[in-house]
């Protein structure tokens, strides 16, 4: 049986699919987080330069990755929604935004906890910190726009346009800020090999997958609520809610 994408693009069928997928991703996230944190706190060796404080990396780096990545996914769904006028795409963008903002906030918060012992300051106006902060501002702006618009159709499209113009701007903001000032350590993971211990990397990647799974589970849960809210006048929702 061929997997029909259009079949699942309908909110009614996607609602069921999401319901079946959520437990897998939620439990996957929990199990991976336990394994990742165990490796992070007990297995991984102490860093010879940064001591024990580096262990915040196991939360900080996955959160920072997800914060940026979720914005890209939102931009993707926004573009799809504007191009094909698919209802589900806008709902996905809306469902992703709070999770993205949460991860961005966590990465800033843990970054401050890391920065204090390493740089001796909770906050520095370094390129990555500043651009992450601006990314958080973008998330907040988009969510504020959605909140302010009562008309659902208009809100969807306006939010999508703002997400897209933000996505064009993010690289420019990043480079302008980087050029303005930089203090953050360089990226430890590069395509040509890493400067990290292998077990540290393993722990971090497991945590990254945990964050990924959590984000998917949270977004799917939220999108299910959105679907119910928007399709409340249809028969299939009535059948689900009043058996």
């Amino acid at each position: 049986m061929a997997f029909n994408l259009y079949y699942y693009a309908a909110p009614a069928t996607f609602y069921g699919l999401a319901g079946r997928l959520i437990p897998w991703f939620a439990w996957g996230a929990a199990v991976l987080a336990v394994i990742g944190l165990y490796i992070g706190f007990f297995v991984a060796p102490t860093d010879f330069q940064q001591g024990e404080a580096y262990r915040v990396i196991f939360i900080h780096v996955p959160a920072a990755w997800m914060g940026m990545f979720i914005y890209l996914v939102m931009a993707f769904w926004s573009a799809i929604g504007l191009a094909f006028k698919t209802r589900l795409s806008f709902m996905m963008a809306r469902a992703l935004a709070p999770t993205g903002a949460l991860f961005t906030f966590i990465s800033l918060w843990t970054g401050a906890l890391w920065g204090k012992p390493m740089w001796g300051a909770w906050w520095v106006w370094d390129a990555r910190l500043t651009s992450t902060l601006i990314l958080l501002f973008l998330y907040i702006g988009i969510m504020a726009l959605w909140a302010a618009i009562d008309d659902r159709n208009r809100g969807d499209k306006a939010g999508a346009l703002l997400t897209l113009i933000g996505a064009v701007n993010v690289p420019i903001i990043y480079f302008s800020v980087q050029w303005w000032n930089t203090l953050h350590q360089g990226a430890s993971i590069k395509p040509s090999g890493t400067s990290m211990d292998e077990i540290m990397l393993t722990g971090m990647l497991i945590m990254a997958f945990a964050a990924w799974f959590y984000a998917i589970a949270a977004a799917l849960t939220r999108v299910r609520t959105l679907i119910l809210e928007r399709e409340r006048h249809t028969d299939w929702v009535k059948r689900i809610l009043e058996p």
């Binding site: 501002f137 302010a148 701007n169 420019i172 903001i173 302008s176 800020v177």
Partner: peptide, 21 residues
């Protein structure tokens, strides 16, 4: 929109960053 002025600030100020810098 209600509160349009403040909302506008929230939306656009982050996009102004490169120009400011």
């Amino acid at each position: 929109l209600r509160g349009g002025g403040v909302l506008l600030t929230l939306l656009i100020l982050p996009l102004y960053v490169p120009a400011l810098i």
